[in-house]
Structures are given as structure tokens and as C-alpha cells.
């Protein structure tokens, strides 16, 4: 090597030293914010948000499970079925068992048994059984993307470790529309508006 004086190493150590100091410097800055605004660097939403922003300096880590990364609206995990709640608490599944989700599913983990009218034997738009093999599901979100009835949506709950095969049935998958609106407010509002417009158009036509 041309020069082996250790200049490059010292220069590099300067970078790590800067990182080291910045953590404590930021702690000091946040101490001021805590006093003036009541904001905390650790174990708080604003702290986690800061640490995952472009202005983050020094230590970057999030202390899971005490702290959790903020989940964006589009985050997707195992799908669930949406039901609407009536005024008296009755549940209406949005799913019509049309089967599009099970046909679009890449690993083919959605199993649907369609209901039949006991009198006529004709299929009726309500799933008799709806199962998702959560261990096969690859969380791609195609089912939710292509469902024409906004009936199957991707969840935000990612803490579902288990010691055995996980297969969800209709009861386990069903979640109220209010839950969906809580985790995905923007999407839900858009879809509700689109559905209302469609219904208004249909009412006008009649």
C-alpha cells in the first residue's frame, strides 16, 4: 500500500464517533422538547415517528415490543372478512361467495363453500364456509385488490405467531366494518363514497 499511516482509519473512526455523540446530542434536544412540549424520545409515538424520519440522528432502533413501528394505512397482513352491523346488532357479511378471491389467490389458500337455498338448491350469495390457510397465505393482497364487494380486506395485525398450523374459518375471519374503517380510514371512506354513489345512481334509475 502507498500509505499506511492509519489516516483513513482515523477518518472512519471520526464518523463512528459522530454517530455516538449524535445519539446523546439528540437526547439532550429531546430533553428540552420534553420540558417545553411534553414530547418524549422513547416509548412514545412522536419519538418513534422521529426515529423513522429523515431527520433521525444517532440511534435508530425501536425497542420492540415496548415500542412499535408506525403502520402505514396500506400495510397488509392476513386477510379478513368485513361484515356490516345493522341497527340491532345483526351481522351481514359483505361476501357473496363469488369466488374471485379464491381464483386470484396465487398460493390458492382460500377455500370457499357456497351456500345453497335449501328449498330450490340454487346457490345464494352468502358463504357457507370460508377458510384461509394462514400458513400458506403470502400476504400479497390480491384478494383484497380484486374483490368487487369490498368484502375481503388485508389486516394490520401482524402478531400471530403460533405453534401449529393456522387455518382460519369464517367466524375467525369476520371483523366489523367499523374495525376496517379504523385501520384504513382513507380507503374505507373512498369505498363507502363509491358505493353510496352507485346506490344513488341505481335508485335514480328506478
Amino acid at each position: 500500500m502507498d500509505d499506511m499511516y492509519g489516516k483513513g482509519i482515523l477518518k472512519g473512526l471520526g464518523v463512528t464517533l459522530k454517530h455516538f455523540w449524535e445519539t446523546y446530542l439528540d437526547d439532550a434536544v429531546w430533553l428540552v422538547r420534553r420540558v417545553t412540549k411534553g414530547e418524549r424520545r422513547y416509548l412514545s409515538l412522536e419519538g418513534v415517528a422521529h426515529r423513522s424520519s429523515k431527520d433521525a440522528r444517532g440511534i435508530f432502533t425501536v425497542q420492540y415490543p415496548e415500542e412499535k413501528l408506525l403502520i402505514p394505512e396500506e400495510f397488509r397482513y392476513i386477510p379478513f372478512l368485513v361484515y356490516d352491523e345493522g341497527p340491532n346488532g345483526e351481522k351481514t357479511m359483505r361476501c357473496t361467495s363469488c369466488g374471485i378471491c379464491s381464483r386470484v389467490c396465487p398460493p390458492q389458500c382460500i377455500w370457499i363453500v357456497r351456500s345453497a337455498d335449501p328449498a330450490t338448491g340454487r346457490p345464494i350469495p352468502d358463504p357457507f364456509e370460508f377458510q384461509i390457510d394462514a400458513d400458506v397465505c403470502m400476504n400479497c393482497g390480491l384478494c383484497a385488490e380484486y374483490c368487487p364487494f369490498d368484502a375481503i380486506k388485508m389486516d394490520h395485525d401482524y402478531e400471530m405467531a403460533s405453534t401449529s398450523r393456522t387455518v382460519f374459518n369464517k367466524e375467525q375471519l369476520a371483523k366489523p366494518a367499523s374495525y376496517y374503517e379504523a385501520i384504513r380510514p382513507i380507503n374505507a371512506a373512498q369505498e363507502n363514497a363509491a358505493r353510496a354513489a352507485k346506490e344513488a345512481a341505481r335508485a335514480a334509475a328506478e
Binding site: S97, G99, R103, V104, I110, W111, V136
Partner: peptide
Amino acid sequence: FEEEAKPFKSRWPDGQFTMA
């Protein structure tokens, strides 16, 4: 092996769940 091409017929409309 189930079928030559997806979607598999066993999933819908009579999708009685079985593990592969």
C-alpha cells in the same frame, strides 16, 4: 400436484379444506 393450472377447481364453489 393438483392440476395443470391455477385456479384449482377444489377451492370454489365447494372448497372443503384439506391440507396439502
